[in-house]
């Protein structure tokens, strides 16, 4: 028991500080990916609903590919592909030395592309849920397309999309664990390190699981609070009073 407490203590003897720094990387990666993935997802949703057939086809291909390919594979393709592309560009420009793709950025891009594909479907569902009359009313008031979207549609969109986007966030949080395979020092990375050094796999992977679980539970609570806030002006429970 003493040994376990030492292993899980803060400082040189224990691994708690390493695990905490890893958890911080995990959270920052998820938080950094979120706005990028959600914004791209919204753009893809608008692309998939546009009047142009070419754009619609592009949107369909995009979501089909990134929803169908394993996240791990996407991560490898983005990481190695960007690495290769950047090196070619670097030497092509005649710049000295070599260039490295930061693992954090590669992870952010890969996870963001996947999140965009999944959140795109949520955004589309939300866009469809907004009554046609809202747009017609806005046009009748003389608002143009961009204004209509920004001032009328978008504010209502968040409320409808929130449950789906919350799900997307939970999935993203768990997917960040894959990032350790490209050597980013996240929670999984430090847990694996601790396992190799201490030969206590059950303890460390168990603790890592509990940390992820804590993140998930806190997120679930946060999403619920956000939903309550977004719905505060609406009748709840379907009861008539």
């Amino acid at each position: 028991m003493d040994r376990i407490l030492t292993l899980l203590s803060w400082g040189n003897q224990g691994w708690l500080d390493e695990l905490a720094s890893g958890a911080l990387v995990t959270i920052s990666l998820a938080l950094a990916t979120l706005p990028f993935g959600l914004a791209l997802g919204l753009i893809m949703a608008l692309v998939k609903r546009s009047d142009s057939r070419v754009l619609r086809a592009f949107g369909t291909i995009y979501t089909t590919v990134f929803r169908g390919v394993p996240e791990l594979l996407t991560l490898y393709i983005v990481y190695f592909g960007l690495q290769l592309g950047m090196r070619r560009l670097w030497t092509g420009l005649g710049l000295p030395g070599t260039v490295e793709m930061p693992a954090f950025v590669a992870g952010m891009i890969a996870l963001g592309l996947v999140l965009a594909a999944f959140s795109c479907e949520v955004w589309i569902g939300a866009l469809n849920a907004i009554h046609k009359g809202q747009r017609e009313g806005a046009y009748a008031l003389g608002l143009n397309k961009a204004q209509t979207f920004r001032l009328v549609v978008f504010p209502q969109l968040i409320r409808v999309a929130l449950p789906g986007l919350g799900n997307n966030w939970m999935v993203l949080l768990k997917e960040t664990s894959l990032i350790s395979v490209i050597a980013l020092p996240d929670l999984m990375f430090w847990t694996g390190r601790a396992n190799v050094v201490t030969k206590e796999p059950f303890l460390f992977f168990g603790v890592a699981c509990l940390i992820y679980l804590a993140f998930s539970l806190v997120s679930a609570g946060g999403i619920e609070a956000l939903e309550r806030r977004a719905n505060r002006g609406f009748a709840q429970g379907g009861g008539s009073r």
Binding site: P201, F202, C209
Partner: peptide
């Protein structure tokens, strides 16, 4: 269900794969 849906599959796999050796 909460535990297995709230933690990454990768972490669970390592827990079983590496952890089994300890037992």
């Amino acid at each position: 269900t909460t535990f297995f849906r709230g933690t990454p599959l990768l972490c669970q796999l390592f827990l079983v794969y590496y952890g089994a050796g300890q037992f």
